[in-house]
């Protein structure tokens, strides 16, 4: 027990961190898998949610709910706007898409800093959970437990949507075979709009709820984008287990970022590398080839 004890808190933090990354990465997988767009402004949409949370939060539940509504709304609108901006770019033109979304990320990040300053903003959590909770003899931040519960519920809901609903079925089919959407006669413009708006909503929700964990600041967007990219790479996209694989990858990255740092402070980026190398090397040729458009 004593040997495990000092690592209980970072391990729990890792779960919270991982669930947060899962919600962000799910949005990335959606835009990437269904619409074929690598959205480099995805982290910026998270940052919008996080800034909204920082501005509106005053320690009450009502403010958190309001922030959630405003933040999700703003990020959804951001995703929809991005879809409109991408409309003139041909579907397979990844380079132009990358340049465009990077430009949006750069300009958007700069606008956020102009509006909210170059400091990391503090975020207040609702007063009732803004205190330590006793957990096996350790004090643990109450909000993080609430966050873990909410994010886990969100993950379950996502899994249910993807595996049980018609829309989810379409998403899964499209991730498996990108040409299929076109064959079904669904308007690709509307698919892109829907996908980017939904992925914006996920990033916004993660931003508002996760603001006390990865707070709003000038480097937020880049950090969130990088970590969720690593999650997407690790999670791969093997058909039906897509949601589960992404979740497992997100939890693993969360543990590397918290428990890994606690165990070996300087090694975290190398651990992420090693994890990517191990997973991609283990996953043989065939599975990866299914990823590629050709």
């Amino acid at each position: 027990m004593n040997q495990v004890d000092p690592y209980l808190i970072p391990a729990l933090d890792g779960v919270a961190y991982g669930l947060l990354l899962f919600v962000v990465a799910a949005g990335l997988v959606l835009s990437f898998g269904v619409a074929g767009i690598l959205n480099l402004a995805h982290g910026t949409l998270y940052a919008i949610g996080a800034y909204v949370a920082a501005i509106l939060s005053d320690g009450s539940w009502l403010a958190l709910l309001l922030a959630l509504a405003v933040g999700v709304g703003a990020a959804t609108a951001g995703g929809a706007a991005l879809s409109g901006m991408l409309a003139p770019v041909p579907r397979g033109d990844h380079l132009t898409q990358a340049l465009l979304t990077f430009g949006v990320a750069l300009a958007g990040g700069s606008l956020l800093v102009m509006a909210f300053g170059a400091e990391n903003l503090p975020v207040r959590v609702p007063a009732t959970v803004d205190r330590p909770v006793d957990l096996a003899g350790h004090a643990y931040a109450g909000y993080r437990l609430v966050f873990i519960a909410v994010a886990a519920a969100l993950a379950l809901a996502l899994h249910a949507v993807v595996t049980r609903t018609r829309a989810g079925m379409l998403v899964r089919a499209a991730v498996d075979d990108p040409d299929m959407v076109a064959c079904l006669g669904v308007n690709p413009e509307r698919v892109r709009l829907g996908v980017l708006a939904a992925s914006g909503a996920l990033a916004g929700a993660a931003g508002v709820l996760g603001a006390p964990i990865i707070g709003p600041g000038p480097s937020t967007a880049a950090t969130v984008l990088l970590l969720s990219l690593v999650v997407v790479v690790l999670g791969g996209r093997n058909g039906h287990s897509s949601v589960v694989a992404t979740l497992v990858a997100a939890l693993a990255v969360g543990q590397i970022q918290t428990l890994g740092v606690a165990l070996a402070p300087t090694a975290a980026p190398f651990l992420l590398f090693a994890a990517m190398a191990a997973v991609l090397a283990a996953r043989s040729h065939g599975l990866i080839r299914r990823w590629s458009p050709a």
């Binding site: 901006m85 990077f102 430009g103």
Partner: peptide, 12 residues
């Protein structure tokens, strides 16, 4: 950064 971002968007 703002202008550079605009440059990227315009270039795209």
């Amino acid at each position: 950064p703002l202008l550079l971002g605009a440059l990227f968007i315009a270039a795209a």
